[in-house]
Simulated assay, not measured.
Amino acid sequence: MSGVNVRPAASDVPNGKTGGPAAPRLDPVSADKVAKEFESMIVGQMMESMFAGLESSGTFGGGGPAEKPWRSFMLQEYGKAIAEAGTLGIGRMVREEVARLYAQQAETAS
């Protein structure tokens, strides 16, 4: 395929350069989603540790073999609710760190 220009024009590349990788772009919606998912996972894990030593309660009918997985599901949902409320600030810190890293990568790419 000689004579065919396969390099994109500068206007087609996000950072305006045609030879190197495009600068990473931060999507605020995606960053928020990832930050909330991370916070949800962390809070859920903390709650799993908190509830690990507790005996069965009447919440799920007095225990039994099915209580452990259902308790885990319940704690995961609690973690999601706490993350959605944003009261701990873990998601906010993660989002800020992701934004800082993207900005740093954009500076080194340009």
Rank of each mutant, 00 (worst) to 15 (best):
A9L: 13
G91N: 09
L75E: 01
V13F: 04
I90Q: 01
S49W: 05
D27I: 06
K33M: 10
E97N: 12
R25I: 13
V94C: 04
K33T: 12
F60W: 13
E84W: 02
L54P: 06
E39P: 03
F73Q: 07
L54Q: 13
M74N: 10
M93F: 13
E67D: 15
S110R: 12
Y102G: 00
G58V: 01
Q105H: 13
E48A: 14
A66H: 11
I82N: 02
D27Q: 06
L101R: 15
D27V: 03
E39T: 05
P8S: 03
P21L: 09
M1F: 14
E48V: 12
G89M: 05
Q105C: 03
M74Y: 12
P65G: 06
T59D: 05
G44Y: 00
M46G: 08
R71N: 04
A103H: 11
E67M: 12
G58H: 00
S30M: 09
G53V: 10
T18H: 08
K36F: 02
E84P: 04
Y78W: 13
E97W: 07
E97G: 10
A10M: 06
A83H: 04
V13E: 07
N15F: 00
G86N: 08
V43S: 03
K17H: 10
E77H: 11
V29E: 08
E55M: 10
Y102K: 00
L101E: 14
K68G: 11
Q105P: 02
G58Q: 03
K68N: 07
T108M: 12
A99Q: 14
K17P: 00
Q45Y: 08
R100T: 05
E96L: 10
A81W: 01
A85L: 13
A66S: 14
W70R: 04
P65V: 05
R95W: 06
V43E: 04
F73T: 04
P65H: 08
S110Y: 05
R100C: 00
A9F: 06
R7F: 14
T108K: 15
Q76E: 13
F73D: 01
D32T: 13
S56R: 11
M46R: 02
E37C: 01
S49E: 13
S57M: 12
V6H: 14
G61I: 09
I42F: 15
V94A: 07
K33I: 07
S2A: 10
V43L: 08
Y102A: 08
G91M: 08
P24I: 06
V29L: 00
M46Y: 07
G16C: 09
P69T: 12
D27P: 06
F73E: 01
T59A: 13
M47G: 03
M1G: 15
V94L: 09
K80F: 03
K17S: 11
G44I: 01
E97T: 12
W70V: 07
V98T: 15
L26R: 09
V94Q: 02
P24D: 07
N5I: 05
Q104V: 00
E107A: 14
E97A: 11
I42C: 08
D32A: 14
S56D: 15
L54W: 11
M50A: 07
S110L: 09
S72E: 13
L88W: 08
T87P: 00
P69K: 07
K36V: 05
V6Y: 10
A83D: 02
P14N: 15
